[in-house]
Nucleic acid binder design. Sequence first.
DNA 1: TATATGTGATTGCGCACGCAACAAACGCAT
DNA 2: ATGCGTTTGTTGCGTGCGCAATCACATATA
Lengths: 161, 161
Amino acid sequence: MENDNFTTLEQGAWGGLLGMHGRMMRLIDADLQAHSHISHVEFEVLLRLSWEADHRLRIHDLAARSVLTRSGISRLVERLEQAGLVVREKATEDRRGAYAVLTKAGMTHFEAALRQHVAFVRRHFLALFSEAELEQMAVFWQRVETGQANLESGDNTRPEN
Amino acid sequence: MENDNFTTLEQGAWGGLLGMHGRMMRLIDADLQAHSHISHVEFEVLLRLSWEADHRLRIHDLAARSVLTRSGISRLVERLEQAGLVVREKATEDRRGAYAVLTKAGMTHFEAALRQHVAFVRRHFLALFSEAELEQMAVFWQRVETGQANLESGDNTRPEN
DNA sequence: TATATGTGATTGCGCACGCAACAAACGCAT
DNA sequence: ATGCGTTTGTTGCGTGCGCAATCACATATA
């Protein structure tokens, strides 16, 4: 009755993914903490801010793109503010809102963190794959995001749940 | 100077992986909570126990295979014990140690959770890929685990950090 | 045997986070 | 303008977890 459990193949793909992700996260957190004294989520927030032309983003937008909720982002921004990496600014066009804005010091700190982080991820993950393989991976994740199965993959019970 | 940042390709592969993993985790946690009233880590611990012939495992071994530390596992097992799904038993061969042992009720509860969970992961992830693709994924994660790069993938700076 | 050093599990403390309640402000209808 | 539902950010409370100290026991060395 192996219909009730993962097959070996599924174990390799899904279980392997979970295990690999867990190990990578531990490594990355440790590296980020050691070199830049920030967590992975904090790094990601700085990354999103650096992507903006004016280096500013609403708390709500940060939450929408991150793994955290608004309350989490609110407190995270508070920490970054205490560290001097960002400042809060009230939005003038919508007086409920607040922006998180990268400071000069924050940008400098982030750029160093980014260099180290990119090198780290390349060394421990990206360097292990060819360009074609990376391309294929991107296609995989895209497929999960859209929920669209590949061509003819047999038993596609339609997602209803 | 895109040497300092991820390329579009790397973004697709690595960033896509992170995003996909985050979304899947949220979905799985919600599903597991709704149907079985347990978290994903708790489920994983029950899974490891169910794999053992005698349905028992040392706290230390559970911690080694899970994402949690010993203290985390210790408290998690305490919760599962309060829920009646496992019991603690002191090890006789090493009187420092303690086993977590699946109860009958725990096994029953877990089997139902497993069926639901497997179906859920199949529907939202595994069903989107062909067998060959799942096979390849497994190979990918294996590669990351061993740190061995693929054949000729160019700029392999050796992991020293 | 006596002592030192190491290991397994638990626990006090602190931290990051989600949930839900809240206040402020928005937008829309009347 | 007034009222009402909605949205934004913050905050009190509870929870799950890591770190490090601790206890009980094991193993090694003398």
